[in-house]
Design a binder for these strands. Structure first.
Lengths: 231, 231
DNA sequence: TCCGAAGTTTGTCAAAGGGCAACGTTCATG
DNA sequence: CATGAACGTTGCCCTTTGACAAACTTCGGA
C-alpha cells in the first residue's frame, strides 16, 4: 500500500499540536479503506477491535431494538473520530456504523488506544471532547423526542443535518449526504409516510426542495419557526 | 467539621485498589453535605466547579428544553460519581441534578480532577466507565422513545427503576425513592394523566401497587411482557 | 432498453393519547 | 385541627399520526 500523506492529519484537532515525525508514526500504523454507500464499518455488539477516523464521506450510526427496528443516533462528518468505545472502557461497539455515502476511513487496532492516549495529549483531549459532544447531541435528541410533536422533531432534525453537514447551493443549504424519507423517520421515531407528507407540504410552501435521497433547505428561518412552534 | 471515616470510600469502585493513606488524602479534600428532597445540587449551564459522589439517597438528573419543559434523563444511585462534566472536557454542567430523596453527597473542587485522574488509575477507569454506562442508558432511552408506544415506555421505565434501585418488600419490588406520576411522565415523554391512567389500570390487574409518591411492582414478569408487547 | 428494486406519494381510516376540566386525597404547617 | 398546596384520578372530546393500501417515479444493472 502506498504511504499515506501526512497532510491528511495535520490540522485535524486530535493531531494538531503534533510534530511531523509523530504524525508519520501514527500514519504508518493506520489502515486506510474505502467503503461504498451502505456498507457497514462495524456492527453493534461486536468486538471493538479498531478505532476510526473519517477522512471523507459520511457515516450513519444506528442502534437496533430487540424487535428489529433501527434508530439512527447520529451522523459523523469528515475529520471526526468514531468507534472509540474504548474511551468508555467498553469491549464491544455500542452501535452500528454504516457509510451513508462513499467514505474513506482510517483505522487503527485498538491495542494502540492506550499508547495514543498516553503519548498524545491532544488525542486524549479530543477523544473525550468528542464523547462529550455526542452525549450532548443524544441528550438533545432525547429531550426533543420527549417534548416535541412529530412535525417539530422532523423540522429540527432536518435543520440539524443541514447545519452540521450542509453545503450551500443556489437554492439553499443541501444536506451533503444521501438521505431517504425512511432514514429521517428512523431518526425522529415516526414513519416514512409521515415524513413524506411533511416534506411534500413544506415543498409546497417553499421551505424545502427535495428529490430522491436529497433534501435542500431553501428557507431555514421558517423551518426554525416550525421546529419551535408550540401550537 | 468532623473527619470523614475512611470506610465511606473503601469498597467503592473508583477507590477500590487504593491504600489507606490515599483514601485519607482524598477524604481530607472532600466536603460532605446533606441535601433535602427537592434541593438542587447543581444546575444545567452553570460553571462545573465541583464533582460529586453520592453516598446515600438518590439524585435525579434532568434537562430543560427551550420552552421550559423538563425531561428526566437518569437517576443516580449511592456509590456513583456524578457531575463529572470535566471527564468530557466540558466547562459547564450539561444537566441539572436534584435530590430525589434526602441525600448525602461528597464533593471535590474541579481543580482536583486532573490530579485524581493522574494519580488514581481506578478513579480514571471508573469515571470513564460511568460515562460509558450513562451514554448507553441514554441511547437505550432514545431508542425506546423512538420505537415504543407510551404504555410500553412507561412499563419499561418503571421496570428499569425497580431493577436499578428497587428494594424487596413483602408485596414486591419497591422503587426506593419518592416518585410522582409527573416524574414518570417527564421520563417517558407523556403526561401525568396518561401515567395515572396506566398505573390505575395495572393496579386493577395486580401488576403494580402505588400510593402517593411510591410505586411497588408486584408482578415484574407481566410488566416485562407489557414493555415488549408489540400490539 | 427493459425490468425489478428501491424510494416516494397519496388516500382513507381508526386508534392512541394529549388537552381540558373537575374533583378527590394526602400531607405539612401554623 | 383547619387550611391550602401538592399529588392523584377520571371522564370526555378531538387532533395527531400510525396502519394499510395502492400507485407512481427513479435508478442501476442484466
Amino acid at each position: 500500500m502506498a504511504k499515506l500523506d501526512e497532510s491528511l492529519l495535520t490540522g485535524l484537532p486530535p493531531f494538531s499540536q503534533l510534530e511531523r515525525p509523530q504524525i508519520r508514526a501514527i500514519l504508518d500504523e493506520a489502515i486506510s479503506r474505502r467503503y461504498d454507500e451502505g456498507k457497514a464499518i462495524f456492527r453493534e455488539g461486536f468486538d471493538a477491535d479498531h478505532f476510526f477516523l473519517l477522512l471523507d464521506g459520511f457515516v450513519r450510526v444506528s442502534r437496533a431494538t430487540e424487535t428489529g427496528e433501527q434508530v439512527i443516533v447520529l451522523h459523523i462528518s469528515p475529520g471526526q473520530l468514531f468507534g472509540i468505545a474504548r474511551a468508555l472502557q467498553r469491549e464491544t461497539y455500542p452501535a452500528t456504523a454504516i457509510a451513508a455515502a462513499e467514505s474513506i476511513v482510517l483505522s487503527w487496532p485498538m491495542r494502540l488506544w492506550g499508547p495514543f492516549i498516553d503519548s498524545y495529549p491532544s488525542f486524549a483531549a479530543e477523544s473525550y471532547k468528542t464523547v462529550g459532544l455526542r452525549l450532548g447531541e443524544i441528550q438533545a435528541s432525547l429531550t426533543e423526542m420527549a417534548t416535541k410533536a412529530v412535525e417539530q422533531r422532523v423540522a429540527a432534525t432536518v435543520l440539524r443535518m443541514a447545519n452540521q453537514s450542509g453545503r450551500k447551493t443556489e437554492d439553499g443549504i443541501e444536506i451533503a449526504f444521501p438521505i431517504t424519507r425512511e432514514n429521517i423517520a428512523d431518526m425522529t421515531g415516526t414513519t416514512l409516510h409521515t415524513v413524506s407528507r411533511l416534506l411534500s407540504g413544506w415543498q409546497k410552501q417553499g421551505i424545502v426542495k427535495s428529490t430522491r435521497k436529497h433534501v435542500v433547505v431553501t428557507d431555514p428561518h421558517r423551518l426554525v419557526v416550525l421546529s419551535q412552534s408550540n401550537s
